[in-house]
């Protein structure tokens, strides 16, 4: 393992990206700026993944989130032309913002407190399968994740097929342009 200082720097960089990006998302008035900010957060999370030896996920994170999801966001923003500014100074509902502050603060504080009281991680190690060892032989991260997905999570993996199909069908149904006649055989 390498020295502490680079790790620390990487963590700080990742944390800065994540937090600054996230704050940007919720404060920028223009959705495009929020989206750019979102990319920053996503990349920060990817860096945090790398820092924690989850290389495969780091790559997937960039490919799926930054490469597809945010592009989709931008596409829709531009497609609909909804990039006008939203007035964030107007409160949505009286008292909603303080309430949101309070509830989020309590929740996050509560979670952190719980985590620290709980000794952060209490689970048993290697119940399902170690990160880098599979069937007794050392394999890399990608292989380990792949094997886990196709064995332990086989059913979940198959379920994602259903999930994606339903999402695609749904998106097509919703976005399909209305035509004046839609089959007349229903009667």
């Amino acid at each position: 393992m390498t020295a502490t200082v680079p790790d620390l720097l990487v963590f700080l960089a990742a944390a800065a990206m994540v937090v600054v990006g996230a704050i940007g998302v919720i404060t920028f008035r223009n959705p495009v700026h929020s989206a750019i900010s979102l990319i920053l957060t996503l990349l920060g999370v990817a860096v945090a993944f790398i820092e924690q030896e989850a290389h495969f996920l780091a790559a997937v994170q960039v490919i799926v989130y930054a490469g597809a999801i945010v592009v989709l966001f931008l596409f829709v923003i531009m497609f609909l032309g909804v990039d006008e500014r939203e007035d964030v100074t107007v409160e949505p509902l009286i008292g909603q913002r303080p309430l949101a502050y309070a509830s989020v603060f309590v929740t996050v504080g509560g979670i952190v407190a719980m985590l620290s009281r709980g000794g952060w991680v209490t689970g048993a190690s290697t119940v399902t399968g170690p990160t880098a060892v599979y069937n007794g032989s050392t394999v890399d991260n990608v292989t380990a994740v792949g094997q886990s997905v196709f064995t332990t999570y086989l059913f979940a993996f198959e379920a994602t097929a259903a999930l994606l199909i339903i999402a695609v069908v749904g998106a097509v149904v919703l976005a399909r342009r209305e035509r004046s006649v839609e089959g007349g055989e229903s009667a």
Binding site: G110, I111, A113, M114, L115, S116, R117, G118, G119, W120, V121, T122
Partner: peptide, 9 residues
């Protein structure tokens, strides 16, 4: 589990 904080959360 002596400190079930994580679980409770």
């Amino acid at each position: 589990i002596l400190q079930p904080g994580v679980l409770v959360a």
